[in-house]
């Protein structure tokens, strides 16, 4: 019986893929949060600008705040590991 350590084995490949995906989970969460924060807070800022007619100050503040929140989420993931 040849051992499973050598050659191509679908089960082994899948388990490695699974392991990699598991490790990638928090990183994926952080990266989506980074983009999501910029989009959400930037969008809120844009909406406030459109409402109040204060272009571009709320948009700028929203984008800046989005970067801060996104990077904070990223930093939390890095601190954990």
């Amino acid at each position: 019986m040849p051992d499973d350590e050598q050659g191509f084995s679908l089960a082994r490949s899948l388990s490695f893929l699974q392991e990699n995906l598991r490790r990638a989970g928090p990183a994926a969460a952080a990266s989506y949060a980074l983009v999501g924060a910029v989009l959400l807070l930037g969008g809120l800022g844009y909406a406030l600008d459109a409402w109040q007619g204060t272009t571009p100050w709320f948009l700028l503040a929203g984008l800046l705040l989005g970067v801060v929140v996104g990077l904070y989420e990223l930093a939390k993931v890095v601190w954990r590991s």
Partner: peptide
């Protein structure tokens, strides 16, 4: 405040993606 915003950012990212 950053944490509270982060709370809403996570589901928002899921929605958009």
């Amino acid at each position: 405040p950053i944490e509270i915003m982060g709370l809403f950012v996570k589901p928002f990212a899921l929605t958009m993606r």
